[in-house]
Structure formats: structure tokens, C-alpha cells
Amino acid sequence: MKKILFVFLDLLSIAFLAGGYAIQYFTKRKLGMVRWVVFKNKQLQEQMPVDVLKYAAAAFVLILAVFTLAGFLKKKAHRKKPDVVMAIFMAALTAGYLGFTILASENSIRSYYLVMPMIGAAALLQVIRNMIAVRTCKYEK
């Protein structure tokens, strides 16, 4: 059951990353797409405090990731190699998400406001995945 859940979360993460990639890909190539993206950016900025939300979301994911990593390090005796790989990937993805949130902007990447939540969602799913792994690893042989 846990294995199925992990595969599902991994696939969902891939889907979010692929979605972000697709948005950026077409934004760079299709004028209609970039104009729709500009329109959506404007709508988002009018309807919600996106600049506050983006940092709040990034901080939330970061805190969860730190707690998860801390828990993972505590359970040194029980962890397995694939879990280590996924924990490293989670850390890298979270770092990438934070970097994207802080360093990029709407001016540098037109689809910033649409791609950022995609990467954030992928990072969050990986945090959840690793959190489950940490909480359940003690029951495994």
C-alpha cells in the first residue's frame, strides 16, 4: 500500500513538473500563450496578494522539508538507500523551488506565477512522500 502511495506521489510530482515545463515551453514559443499568461498574471495580482502568498508557501514547504529531513536523520538505523536518494531529491527540489521563488520574477520568466506553484506542488508532494517514509520506516525490517 505504501509503495503504491509513493509511486502515486512520485507520478503526481512528475506531472506537476511536466506541467510547469509545458507552460514555460509554450510561453516561449506561442504569442497567444504568453499573452494569456500575462493576462493571468495580472488577474492573480489583482485578486490576491501573490507576493505575500508565494513567500508564505515557500516558507511552509521549507519548514516541512527541514522537519522531514531532521526526522530522517534521526532514524539513521532504519533508513534504506532508496529513501536516502528520495530525501536528497526532496531537498534538491525544495531548494530549487525556493531559488525559483526568490531569484526569478515575472519579468525574467513570464510564466513565473504559473510555474512557481507547479514546482511548489511537486516539492510539497515529495516532502509528504518523505514524511510518510520517515514515519513508517521504523515498522519495516
Binding site: 509511486v7 512520485d10 512528475i14 513538473l17 528520495m86 531529491f89 530549487g96 514546482i119 511537486a122
Partner: peptide, 13 residues
């Protein structure tokens, strides 16, 4: 499986 998924995600990003 874990390694493959990990690789796919890194490549996609």
C-alpha cells in the same frame, strides 16, 4: 523504481 522516478523528475526539472 525509486531511482527511475528520481531521474525522470530531475530531467524534467
Amino acid at each position: 523504481v525509486s531511482m527511475l522516478l528520481c531521474t525522470a523528475m530531475v530531467m524534467s526539472l
